[in-house]
């Protein structure tokens, strides 16, 4: 508890939290303040910002602010889902391997390292381009999560194997706890704050990854996303035409989300990670 209080005294953490809360507010409270509609053309293509359309319109004449809100929601969704998938898969494999040690751990480590050297982006691009129609937002999130979990697995494995040497784990064993119970009761609780930090990082990474592949034109077919807005702006010559409102806000948003999550993570690490604390 005391640690949590300490966290709220760190300016960087507060800044990160504020920025992240602001993006959440824009995504979910925005529609209460202004009208969000991405299916009707409200004016000419690339209308400059005005009182009626605060961020102008895009290449089709759709309200840009509406596009942003929907894109932001999609990005957060991808980030969250991919983050959850990567954290759960990575944590399970990492904790189990770290605790068990031996051959199983070796196999898992090789597997982890294999996934680590496979460039996620290339796999994503290959997968995405081979599935033109089925490329839904959820699928993209799952692919991102399914290829980036190795990072959490490695981080968690190291922590878990150092816990294995603690006597409370040995005591649980001679109390007759099963391996699964030990992992869930004796090891996971010690890693919770750590896993939460890993989750935040995984989320940030997923949001950036989605933006990258969407910008390459391999975004979801069923949804708007911040990356797709950028891609649209690029393919419809908004950059050359100096139509800044078509790409700047999306770019700023992606940066702000990723930045705020990284800052939150760094601050938490400073507080929770005992080696930095000591």
């Amino acid at each position: 508890m005391q640690l949590v209080k300490g966290l709220f005294k760190i300016p960087a953490f507060l800044l990160g939290l504020f920025l992240f809360a602001a993006t959440l507010a824009l995504a979910f409270l925005g529609p209460l303040v202004f009208h969000v509609d991405v299916s009707t053309r409200v004016g000419d293509p690339y209308m400059a910002p005005s009182a009626a359309h605060w961020l102008g319109t895009d290449h089709l004449g759709v309200d840009m602010l509406s596009m942003l809100v929907m894109g932001l929601r999609a990005s957060l969704y991808v980030g969250f889902l991919a983050g959850v998938v990567a954290t759960i898969v990575g944590t399970l494999i990492g904790v189990y391997g770290g605790y068990k040690g031996g051959l199983l751990d070796d196999i898992l480590t090789v597997l982890t390292n294999l996934f680590l050297v496979i460039p996620t982006l290339i796999v994503l691009i290959l997968l995405s381009s081979s599935m033109d129609k089925g490329r839904s937002l959820t699928l993209i999130a799952l692919i991102i999560g399914g290829t980036t979990w190795t990072w959490s697995a490695r981080a968690v494995r190291a922590q878990s194997s150092s816990l294995r040497a603690r006597d409370h784990v040995a005591l649980a064993r001679i109390n007759g706890f099963s391996t699964l119970e030990i992992v869930l009761e004796q090891i996971l609780p010690y890693l919770l704050s750590y896993i939460f930090m890993v989750f935040i990082l995984q989320t940030a990474t997923a949001i950036l990854t989605e933006a990258t592949i969407s910008m390459l034109g391999l975004g979801p077919y069923d949804s708007i996303s911040l990356g797709k807005i950028l891609n649209d702006a690029k393919t419809n010559e908004a950059l050359i035409g100096g139509k800044w409102w078509a790409f700047m806000p999306a770019m700023v948003l992606v940066t702000v989300i990723a930045f705020s999550l990284y800052v939150i993570n760094t601050a938490m690490e400073g507080v929770f990670n005992p080696r930095l604390r000591k």
């Binding site: 190291a158 150092s162 005992p274 080696r275 000591k278």
Partner: peptide, 15 residues
């Protein structure tokens, strides 16, 4: 027993 097992002595001393 409270020395951090993942850090070298010199890093802890440098802190």
């Amino acid at each position: 027993n409270s020395l951090n097992p993942t850090r070298k002595i010199k890093d802890m001393a440098a802190d």
